[in-house]
Amino acid sequence: MRIAMTEPRLTDSELPELFRTADTASLQGQRVYIGATKIRLSLAVAAAVFAAVSIRVGDRWDLAALFVACAFIATLMVEFWLLTRNPERDWYDGRALAESIKTLSWRYSIGAAPFILSSPDMEAERQFIQEVQKLIDEAPADSIVISDPVRVTEQMRSLRKKDLELRKRVYLESRIQDQLEWYSSKAKFNSRRARSWRLALISIEGTGIIVALLKAGGLINFDLPGVLAALLGAGSAWFAVRQYEALARAYKFAANDLSTVHSRLQCVEEEDVWARESADAEEAISREHTMWRASRGALSA
């Protein structure tokens, strides 16, 4: 059953402003880090290509060697910039804060523990703000700039005031089903990418064997094996950065977990049971994100 347009929803745009601030910081950090990684690996391959040739200018200078030096200098500059700018930290910390704010917002809005409906409205809001403040205090001060006061949105208040049946329907469709579809699609996407990259790396390795034998037999003079070795190293590094296989497994696990959660929540009819079960559902969603951060070597928020 689809939610009517007149019924309350809770989209990302209706969460506290802090969620969007952290989400934007995370996406920006991810774009910058991935972009810099692409540049760094491309420069490494370019250096291998120029190292394999010789472009003489007069009797002294080798233009190809100068290009190799320039490529290494550029790579070094990118490395220093990544070290000082640290966009990877913005990516992880921003995502941790954004997802934590989202979880607290949904808990408050549907009456999940610890924001049970038996608590007075002002007390529940005060508790929500206190929980958010704890997250802010734990977040690195220079990763995310907060420009808007922490507050409960009108959409969150509106949903919280509805009866259990409506809150359950909204939560199952707009939160659980949405997350289930997202994890399922991402699991399939990462599985396809993992297979494609594995085949690509195997192709490079096979080609490397052939050209190495051809060079050993004197059939080619160009250092193509060295170029392929650099290309293989860059491809392997990119494959490790993207973690397609690990993410595919984690997303499959999360999708299966949420499928069970969805079925269990449909049977809830008492308010106290709902407060407990919906809180457990949010724990299941948070658990996947914690695993993602751990797989990337980041500290849990």
Results as ranks from 00 to 15, higher is better:
26 S>I: 01
117 L>Y: 01
263 S>L: 14
110 I>N: 10
57 V>H: 11
20 R>L: 11
249 R>M: 09
154 E>P: 06
66 L>G: 05
28 Q>A: 08
161 K>C: 04
136 I>N: 01
19 F>N: 00
259 S>C: 08
267 C>K: 13
115 F>D: 02
58 G>P: 05
58 G>T: 07
133 Q>T: 15
296 R>S: 09
22 A>K: 02
46 A>E: 00
72 F>L: 12
195 R>W: 10
112 A>S: 13
188 K>L: 05
50 F>E: 02
110 I>D: 05
55 I>T: 13
193 R>Q: 14
115 F>T: 01
157 R>Y: 00
47 A>W: 10
188 K>R: 01
96 A>E: 11
17 E>T: 10
291 M>Y: 08
54 S>H: 11
182 W>H: 00
256 N>Y: 01
5 M>I: 13
124 A>V: 06
287 R>W: 11
28 Q>E: 10
265 L>W: 05
261 V>D: 04
192 R>F: 06
107 R>P: 03
232 L>F: 13
291 M>E: 14
38 K>Q: 11
156 M>K: 08
267 C>T: 11
227 V>F: 05
16 P>T: 02
90 D>M: 09
186 K>Y: 10
93 D>I: 09
167 R>L: 09
236 S>E: 05
254 A>P: 04
253 F>V: 13
246 A>K: 12
226 G>W: 00
38 K>A: 12
196 S>G: 08
13 S>C: 02
258 L>R: 07
282 E>V: 04
142 D>G: 05
136 I>C: 12
191 S>E: 15
57 V>D: 10
100 S>Y: 00
203 S>A: 15
163 D>Y: 03
221 N>Q: 14
214 L>Q: 15
222 F>E: 09
100 S>P: 01
254 A>H: 05
260 T>S: 11
298 A>L: 00
13 S>R: 14
277 E>I: 03
215 K>N: 06
57 V>T: 09
88 E>V: 13
91 W>A: 04
32 V>M: 11
52 A>I: 10
145 V>L: 09
222 F>N: 07
